[in-house]
């Protein structure tokens, strides 16, 4: 009741103005544009392969009804049959030869009924093809891909936070010659398109013998100018007097970094962690280049591998797409307030 009241509030308690209508139309349109494809994807991921190839497509996942028939191993599809005497019955098909199909009544299995395929139509019902998901494990080494993705994402994020925060600490709290130049140099790399450093990066990784190793994906990604910038701007707001006080308190420079600056930079670290998780999880191009062995694939690469040259198993592809989307969606749903907070406080708008 409260929610309804909240949702149907109007300005000054009056009826809707034409601008309100316009806003609602605009917002609804936006909602469909943004959310429609996602809904379609989730819906389609529960369709069987046959349902996916149907035209016209149905919105909800429908499938043909199937029942168990005594003496048969597999579930048999059910058809609505018009019998010669004019009655209509829903019976499972046991076999079909040419235009004639043999149906059977499970109640009387010894009296097969032969029907022309023209005189029947499939019985459809709402059916979630959950096997798209449950079969994934058997179809592909899903566990391996998931582990690869999770390993790369977690390790790269932890290392990103560690290295970037150390760089940001030095750049924000120590005065040394060339500090600004170093900072500008780091920022300057933002202007270099990733495609340009792709080949040099590949050569370095290759020379270091990290091809087909998850570390080959992790190391080149951990130093991000965005992260250094974000953290530095935040750390500038930590008063120097705190560091002086810690120095008077016999804290070593490492302790100042670890026990004073890091805990105080937690909001900015949270933002960078969210970004890093998203970047690493969604990363495609770089893993594609570094990892060529099947057992080293990340989820994104496995997704790509599903798209065969001749045959694409769309039902599995869609199910896996949904699974790969989930972590990012969860991260966003629960941590979005930190993103806005952190970005606002880092002075990047």
């Amino acid at each position: 009741m409260k929610a309804l009241k909240f949702l149907t509030r109007t300005r000054n308690g009056r009826s809707l103005d034409w601008t309100d209508w316009l806003s609602y139309v605009y917002l609804t349109l936006g909602l469909f544009l943004m959310f429609g494809p996602v809904i379609w994807l989730v819906g389609s991921s529960f369709k069987t392969e046959a349902a996916l190839n149907e035209f016209p497509p149905s919105f909800l996942p429908y499938g043909q009804k199937a029942v168990a028939v005594p003496g048969e191993e597999k579930m048999k599809p059910v058809y609505r049959i018009k019998l010669p005497d004019g009655t209509v019955k829903e019976l499972p098909e046991v076999r079909r030869i040419g235009l004639m199909a043999t149906h059977i009544d499970p109640a009387r299995p010894d009296e097969p009924i032969r029907v022309n395929v023209k005189d029947r139509e499939p019985v459809r019902e709402f059916k979630l093809a959950t096997e798209n998901y449950t079969d994934l494990g058997g179809k592909i080494q899903f566990g391996t891909y998931l582990w690869n993705s999770v390993f790369i994402t977690l390790v790269a994020t932890i290392l990103t936070l560690l290295f970037n925060s150390m760089a940001a600490f030095a750049l924000s709290k120590y005065k040394f010659k060339g500090r600004t130049s170093v900072f500008l140099l780091i920022l300057g790399t933002l202007m270099v398109p990733p495609a340009i450093v792709l080949v040099p990066n590949f050569l370095v990784v290759s020379e270091l013998g990290m091809l087909n190793s998850l570390w080959g994906v992790i190391w080149p990604a951990i130093a991000t100018p965005t992260g250094v910038f974000l953290l530095r701007q935040y750390m500038l707001t930590i008063p120097d007097e705190l560091l002086d006080a810690a120095r008077m308190d016999h804290a070593s420079e490492w302790q100042i970094y670890w026990r004073i600056v890091l805990p105080l930079a937690a909001p900015a670290l949270a933002v960078l962690a969210i970004f890093s998780v998203m970047w690493r999880w969604n990363d495609f191009l770089w893993p594609l280049i570094v990892l060529s062995k099947n057992e080293k694939f990340t989820l994104q690469l496995a997704l790509n591998a599903f798209q065969g040259d001749l045959v694409t198993q769309w039902n599995y592809l869609l199910a896996m797409t949904v699974i790969t989307l989930l972590p990012i969606t969860i991260v966003f749903a629960f941590l979005q307030k930190y993103i806005t907070q952190g970005i606002a406080s880092a002075g990047v708008k």
Binding site: E241, D244, A245, A246, R247, I260, P263, L264
Partner: peptide, 18 residues
């Protein structure tokens, strides 16, 4: 600074907020 045996009270107090 730490080894001079002095203690400083800062203008902003510089208490560790966390």
């Amino acid at each position: 600074a730490a080894d001079r045996g002095l203690a400083m009270v800062f203008q902003s107090y510089a208490l560790y907020p966390h």
